[in-house]
Each structure stands twice: as C-alpha cells, then as structure tokens.
Computed example of a mutant assay.
Amino acid sequence: MLFEALIGAFLSAGGEMAALLYMDWIGIKVNINITPYERQFNACPDNLIIVSYLESLLNYSFRDRSL
C-alpha cells in the first residue's frame, strides 16, 4: 500500500505525468508518451459511499475525497 499512497501523492501534488514518471521509475512499466486526459466528469465520492463514515472507520480525514 505504500506505493499506492506515493502514487496518489505524486498524482495530487504533481499531476498525472508526475505519477506516471514515478510509476515508471519504481518499475511499473507505463506508456508515458500517451497524453494525460482531462476528467470528463467531476468525481463526487459522496454520491457513491459515505466518505465521512469511511473516515471515521479509518480514523483519517482525506484531503481530496475525489482521489
């Protein structure tokens, strides 16, 4: 799970290209020549799950609930 967290950190801090470059660096082969795409929708996790309940179970507060 550490690598997943780091990928998420690179994604949220540096964008999709930074995350792809990090994944390539740690050995997850990705095609970095493909242009990252814009999200076609606004992610709203509160419509899918009760995020506040998940946060209470984990004793953690997400900074960006859409990730």
Score class of each variant (00 low, 15 high):
42 N>I: 13
53 Y>W: 07
64 D>C: 03
60 Y>A: 02
40 Q>L: 12
3 F>N: 12
63 R>M: 06
33 N>F: 12
54 L>T: 07
50 I>R: 14
17 M>A: 07
30 V>E: 10
38 E>T: 05
24 D>V: 09
23 M>G: 04
8 G>N: 07
64 D>G: 03
18 A>Q: 11
16 E>I: 08
24 D>H: 12
26 I>Q: 01
48 L>C: 08
14 G>T: 00
27 G>E: 04
58 L>R: 04
36 P>S: 04
57 L>T: 02
54 L>K: 07
44 C>P: 02
35 T>N: 10
32 I>W: 05
51 V>C: 03
25 W>L: 12
58 L>Q: 02
51 V>R: 00
25 W>K: 15
9 A>K: 13
19 A>H: 00
37 Y>M: 13
67 L>D: 09
7 I>P: 00
45 P>Q: 02
5 A>E: 10
21 L>C: 13
2 L>V: 11
41 F>Q: 09
17 M>R: 15
67 L>M: 11
28 I>E: 08
23 M>T: 09
30 V>C: 15
47 N>F: 05
26 I>H: 02
59 N>Q: 10
32 I>L: 11
59 N>Y: 06
12 S>V: 12
57 L>H: 02
39 R>E: 10
25 W>C: 15
33 N>Y: 12
27 G>V: 07
22 Y>T: 03
67 L>C: 10
24 D>T: 14
40 Q>M: 06
63 R>N: 07
45 P>D: 00
12 S>L: 13
38 E>F: 09
44 C>M: 08
63 R>Y: 05
12 S>T: 14
8 G>M: 07
53 Y>F: 11
15 G>W: 02
51 V>A: 00
56 S>Q: 06
39 R>L: 12
25 W>F: 15
38 E>H: 12
60 Y>C: 03
6 L>A: 07
11 L>S: 06
16 E>F: 04
56 S>D: 05
38 E>W: 04
43 A>Q: 08
65 R>Q: 05
11 L>P: 00
3 F>G: 05
23 M>S: 15
48 L>Y: 14
42 N>V: 14
19 A>R: 00
29 K>T: 15
45 P>I: 01
52 S>H: 11
33 N>I: 04
15 G>A: 03
43 A>S: 13
24 D>N: 15
38 E>S: 08
8 G>W: 05
3 F>Q: 10
4 E>L: 15
45 P>H: 01
10 F>Y: 15
61 S>R: 09
45 P>K: 00
49 I>N: 02
51 V>I: 14
43 A>N: 06
50 I>M: 08
43 A>Y: 07
9 A>I: 13
13 A>M: 13
39 R>C: 05
46 D>M: 04
21 L>W: 09
30 V>R: 15
